[in-house]
């Protein structure tokens, strides 16, 4: 039987528009292969007769929503949320003290939080190194602010070198981790962080020694430095021992 004859037969028998759901009792449009209400398949007793091509009311193409987060929206929301403690602190300081005194610490801290947490999201691209450099500068600025308000002379000999070394190490790690050329594996990252922490403790002690005008020799910082270096070495070695790594992964998964 050719296609035209099928078509005539379908039209004559009215198969195209008379399927009912046996479960719900509703008539189903010819395009429905199963009942949209209960999911029961449409059983047409005349199924051996090929059906006419059916027209649907909706296309099959679907519009998808991308799951990207709106960076700017997040940044604005975070900024607005930061405004709340800022305003409260300023108002309380103005009412109780008659001017801005202690609230400057809070303002500085909130500004630092804004620069580190919200500001990068106003930009369309992640530029870690640039953002981190700026964060570092603002951090040093905040330390200076604290020194300035509290009236000590510790910023140049103590505040600047310590915050500077923190910033330098952080920048170093960022460069290492975010380099586009090669990816740093997880355990190597851990090793780098451990080495950096060890170095930081030593440098903090040296800076303190210099400030206190004592002999510049590392003593207590070695207690932190040595385990850091050892653990770092372990991580670095483990990175290259795949089997051992698997064993540890297996036992420590959570």
């Amino acid at each position: 039987m050719n296609k035209r004859n099928h078509t005539k037969l379908n039209e004559r028998n009215g198969h195209k528009s008379m399927s009912y759901c046996v479960n719900c009792g509703v008539e189903l449009a010819s395009a429905e292969k199963k009942c949209p209400l209960c999911g029961v398949a449409v059983i047409n007793p005349a199924a051996s007769v090929p059906e006419l091509p059916v027209s649907k009311s909706y296309p099959t193409r679907m519009e998808m929503i991308s799951r990207k987060i709106d960076r700017k929206y997040f940044a604005s929301l975070a900024s607005i949320l930061l405004m709340i403690p800022l305003l409260i602190t300023v108002i309380v300081d103005l009412i109780t003290g008659g001017g801005l005194s202690w609230s400057l610490y809070v303002i500085g801290a909130l500004f630092l939080l804004f620069v580190c947490g919200a500001l990068p999201f106003f930009f369309p691209k992640n530029r870690f190194f640039l953002f981190m450099t700026f964060d570092g500068l603002v951090l040093m600025g905040y330390v200076f602010l604290i020194a300035f308000i509290s009236g000590g002379d510790w910023f140049l000999p103590l505040g600047l070198p310590i915050s500077g070394s923190v910033v330098l190490l952080a920048l170093g790690l960022t460069t290492l981790f975010c380099g586009k050329k090669h990816r740093v594996a997880g355990l190597s990252k851990l090793a780098a962080v451990l080495f950096a922490s060890g170095l930081l403790t030593v440098s903090i002690e040296l800076i303190l020694d210099a400030y206190l005008k004592g002999p510049i020799i590392p003593k207590w910082s070695l207690y932190a430095f040595v385990p850091c270096v050892f653990l770092g070495l372990c991580a670095a070695v483990l990175q290259h021992r795949r089997n051992f790594k698997e064993q540890i992964k297996k036992r420590l998964f959570f």
Partner: peptide, 22 residues
């Protein structure tokens, strides 16, 4: 509605069976 004696003809946008694109 069917029980109340009203014939109902059902059609859907068959979203489960659609191709996903765009």
């Amino acid at each position: 509605l069917v029980k109340l004696g009203i014939p109902v003809r059902i059609e859907s946008n068959q979203i489960g069976e659609t191709r996903e694109c765009e």
